[in-house]
Design a protein around this nucleic acid. Structure first.
Length: 598
RNA sequence: GCCCCCGUAGCUCAGCUGGAUAGAGCGACGGCCUUCUAAGCCGUGGGUCGCAGGUUCGAGUCCUGCCGGGGGCGCCA
């Protein structure tokens, strides 16, 4: 099921961290190239993937089906040729192959290949799976949450925070340089309204029409000295300051750390202000015009469905004006890409922003606006409303109190961001033991617990290059030489025959669960590539769950401590360590803790 | 009216930009603790992939139309 090609694209990154599939994929590509000869170019990417059904082999490739049009031959015939070619390239590593279905080539790899794969993954250490961006590394700014400081963060912001932060972690791990920023509106109508709301509360009057009704407004009013005597503007300033601190504290608690908080107000300061400068420039390039007493940005030139007002007829700039100056500011800071996930209630704004980017002379493709669908908190079959202005909402802090940081983050991240998320709070709280996040954490804790029973030296021995199981391995298979100290060897080097006298444990067949676990681990780099490319952290959550499952199957079937002969115990210790590391890294990408005990 | 997202098992969701017999968790049913954590494992049942057409060797995936749910179409943010 799992796609494996992602991490195997040529020329992307160094082999070690990208794992054993890199070499295998290159061998398949080489075999396909040999069969293709001079025939036309390949239009689609050759894929190496797990077969759809168990028992069909370790990996399969669609190469033959892709070559069929150019070669004018039946896919199955081509698959036969690729199979023969691959047999030569992989020597003893390719134990069996067969052509199946419409033209799939199914591959069965040797135990020795699996052992070397494990050795290679361990050698890469905690960087295994990372660095896939390689030369394509970018400087990325991700601006997320950016909720107005007019109240505490609501539960729905938990989705934005988890998404943006996990995506940042994934992109960083993948090899990009990422800055996280929170942009806050501390100017304009909503802030004025906040100040007036606080003032009304302080004076014991009803909150103005459309103002902020929440209890926190009264609390703010009560906590500000002499609030009743101060102006709305003054009160707004204090309120914003305090609410921002509160928001930051909530985010920190949620394990979301920003590199910077950016104030909208600063864009209006100075003479000329950043805002004025950008408007002047746009006027010079004829992208803004005056009409009906207002100033408009001609976004229709760049595909927006209507032009947008940037300065009201009252002379007051709109939020878009601020965003224009902000966009320009980010461009001047030299980022290759700007990610700004927004809620689906702002989805129409994505087009406007891209148009604005183009009007500024930038590349609209550098602005990416993933749309996050809503979160419905459900309790006892009842959906919670979460309107900040009305004041009837569940705050993110409330949610964290209820179900904790780990569960909240995992739930927020486990489904695709473009789907409405139903989060049953009652279930998450009451039946927390069934929570998938605990399942993954439990697998990690189990491994830690098991390893605690061993002397550290024993574990080090099992991982060392002198361990018997490693001797039976060697470098990664295929044309690509394996890196790292563990399992290093001649490129495409000598591969002991299965059961040969030379291999100290070469005669001991791997258990199916061991082979499967190794392959699940080996697919991690491709999962990271996919999650990064598609801005889809939920893939990592799904992968973590699958990996935990695969480890548990191994754990149930293969007793580790005391397994005989010794190389088997060593091998299983090493495999457990690898699983533990990858679970921890995957959870780390989600910002979920990996406990050593539960 | 126009635009965007979604519709897959009873429930919550995956499904890698067209591939093989559509998967997982929870719930249901039946088993499993004198061995490294039972927060666990094994097994069974459960599907017209919203509906109808189309594209092709092949469609949950791409196209068109319809139905249903959510969101948007401000000189609000």
């Amino acid at each position: 099921m799992t796609g494996l090609c992602g991490g195997c694209r040529m020329g992307l990154a160094d082999g070690a961290a990208q794992g054993p599939l890199q070499g295998l994929a290159e061998s398949v590509t080489a075999a396909a190239a040999a069969v293709r000869g001079g025939a036309g170019p390949l239009t689609a990417q050759i894929r190496l993937e797990r077969p759809k059904h168990a028992g069909l082999g370790d990996y399969s490739t669609n190469a033959a089906m892709l070559l069929a049009p150019a070669l004018q031959l039946a896919p199955r015939v081509i698959a036969e040729r690729i199979g023969s070619e691959l047999e030569q390239l992989l020597n003893g590593d390719l134990e069996r192959w067969e052509v199946a279905g419409p033209g799939f080539l199914n591959l069965v790899l040797s135990d020795a290949w699996h052992r070397r794969a494990l050795a290679g993954m361990l050698a890469a250490g905690n960087s295994f799976g990372g660095g896939g961006a390689g030369e394509a590394s970018e400087r990325i700014l991700i601006e997320f949450v950016s909720a107005n400081p007019t109240g505490p963060l609501v539960a729905a912001s938990g989705r934005h925070a988890a998404y943006g932060d996990a995506l940042a972690r994934i992109l960083e791990f993948h090899g990009h340089s990422v800055a996280r920023e929170y942009y806050f509106n501390d100017a304009g109508g909503q802030i004025r309204l906040l100040g007036e709301s606080v003032r009304a509360r302080a004076m014991g009057q009803p909150v103005p029409e459309g103002g902020y009704q929440g209890e926190y407004v009264a609390d703010l009013a009560a906590s500000i000295d002499g609030a009743a005597e101060r102006s709305g503007e003054e009160l707004a300033g204090v309120a914003v300051e305090r609410l921002l601190l509160q928001i930051e504290a909530t985010l920190e608690r949620y394990r979301v750390h920003y590199d910077s908080f950016f104030s909208e107000r600063t864009l209006h300061l100075g003479s000329p202000s950043a805002l004025e400068r950008v408007l002047t420039a746009l006027e010079a390039s004829d992208h803004v015009y005056r009409s009906e007493g207002a100033v408009w940005l001609r976004t229709t030139t760049f595909g927006d469905d209507k032009d947008r007002v940037v300065v009201r007829s009252s002379g007051e700039p709109t939020y878009l004006a601020g965003d224009l100056a902000y966009l320009q500011n980010k461009r001047e800071r030299g980022f290759d890409r700007q990610l700004m996930p927004v809620g689906s209630d702002h989805h129409a704004y994505a087009r406007t922003l891209k148009a604005a980017m183009a009007a500024l002379g930038g590349d609209p493709d550098q602005v990416e606006v993933p749309i996050l669908q809503f979160v419905h908190l459900v309790e006892a079959g009842q959906t919670f409303a979460m309107s900040k202005r009305r004041g009837d909402f569940v705050t993110l802090d409330d949610l964290l109190d209820e179900i904790g940081v780990d569960a909240t983050r995992f739930f927020m991240l486990r489904s695709s961001h473009d789907r409405t998320l139903e989060l049953d709070v009652e279930l998450a709280r009451r039946q927390s033991r069934e929570n998938p996040v605990y399942y993954v954490q439990y697998a990690h804790a189990r491994i830690a617990s098991m390893l605690r029973r061993l002397q550290p030296e024993r574990v080090a021995d099992a991982l060392g290059r002198g361990a018997g199981w490693v001797a039976a391995g060697g470098a990664f298979g295929g044309a690509h030489p394996g890196g790292g100290e563990l399992g290093s060897g001649e490129p495409g080097g000598a591969k002991p025959e299965r059961g040969a006298a030379g291999g100290r444990d070469g005669s001991i067949e791997l258990h199916e669960a061991e082979r499967e676990l190794i392959k699940k681990l080996a697919s991690f780099p491709a999962e990271v590539v996919e999650a990064a490319a598609r801005r889809a952290p939920h893939r990592i959550a799904g992968y973590a769950l699958e990996l935990a499952q695969q480890f548990t199957t191994f754990y149930e079937n293969c007793h580790v401590i005391g397994a005989t002969p010794e190389p088997v115990e060593s091998f299983r210790i090493a495999l457990s360590v690898a699983a533990q590391r990858v679970i921890a890294v995957a959870l780390g990408l989600l910002g979920v803790s990996a406990p050593d005990a539960m």
